[in-house]
Design a protein around this nucleic acid. Structure first.
Length: 281
DNA sequence: CCCCTCACCTGATCGC
DNA sequence: TGCGATCAGGTGAGGG
């Protein structure tokens, strides 16, 4: 969503200025602040790419890319050159050959996200495409046409953990956060603490199919937004939050069986599920 | 190597 | 009214 919105505006655009308002947003940048600025200014951006929750914009000058992770609360907002946003941590001013000047505001309330300049490298998992080193260990997301279902199912069965941990493991499958994990598990009727080793291949296939449906729906509905804090590149809220079945609905009836949804604490966050529909088997 | 816990952050909300 | 405590969650360092 974010990537698609940025593509026409940044592809071919030259960076004219970079302003750092909060250095903590450069936590993942390997060098000092000046290095980040110097390597961006004057360079030209190519088409944005995405893997999991990482987005990167290759730079025309060489083998580097501007890598952005949105964390929890990050946004990349496309603005005209006069617009500032509250909690902007990094500002990029661009000049596009066709569209003229444009501004990218990296807004991030909780500063879980970041920007960095990172080297593009080849990896065994992604032979047709160079990816930033910070992204090289991230698996493909299940909507990627090159996602390997058999490999995923085999690696899943080999893990010695529970299913929700596995779904959140970005080296196994990417693009699934806490909300989409709970929604997918609810849809597939799988308990979040089902051991991966005893989850049948048939049920794992159903779960993978439900993951795809949840991610595809979230994508078409513009992401999950609970308030104005979560916006797309045009500053609009997504609508996925209106169609949640389990996440955040503790105490409310399960849309399938009517019994109450339960919330349990797991991995320092919430797991929302229907104890009747979703049982360890 | 594999698995798991926890620190990192801010702002909304809750209880007293 | 105010103030401290709690909660939200993606990532990766570090421990076992």
């Amino acid at each position: 969503m974010v990537r698609a919105g940025l593509e026409p505006a940044v592809t071919g655009a030259r960076v004219t200025a970079v302003t750092i308002f909060d250095e903590r947003s450069l936590r993942r940048h390997p060098g000092p602040t000046e290095d980040f600025v110097d390597r961006l200014v004057g360079d030209t951006m190519l088409a944005p790419q995405r893997r999991g929750k990482f987005m990167w914009i290759p730079l025309a000058s060489g083998s580097d890319a501007l890598v952005t992770h949105l964390g929890m609360s990050g946004q990349v907002l496309l603005r005209d050159t006069a617009t500032d946003d509250p909690r902007t941590r990094i500002r990029l001013d661009l000049e596009h050959p066709a569209h003229g000047p444009v501004r990218l505001n990296f807004v991030d309330q909780r500063i879980f996200g970041s920007m960095a300049i990172d080297e593009l490298v080849p990896t065994a998992d992604h032979p047709e495409q160079l990816v930033p080193t910070a992204v090289s260990h991230i698996a493909r997301d299940p909507l990627d046409l090159r996602f390997d279902d058999r490999r995923f199912l085999t690696r899943l069965a080999a893990k010695n953990t529970t299913i929700k941990r596995a779904l959140l493991d970005q080296t196994l499958i990417s693009g699934i956060g806490n909300i989409y994990a709970d929604e997918s598990l609810w849809a597939a009727r799988v308990h979040y603490e089902q051991p991966t080793a005893t989850l049948s291949r048939a049920r794992a296939k159903v779960l993978l199919a439900e993951v795809r449906l949840v991610l595809a729906k979230a994508l078409t509905e513009g992401g999950t937004s609970f308030d104005t804090q979560y916006l797309n590149v045009n500053g609009q809220a997504g609508y996925f939050a209106h169609s949640l079945n389990a996440y955040g609905r503790q105490g409310e009836p399960c849309p399938r069986c009517g019994r109450p949804i339960v919330r349990e604490s797991f991995m320092n966050r919430g797991s929302h599920f229907c104890p009747y529909c979703q049982r360890v088997r």
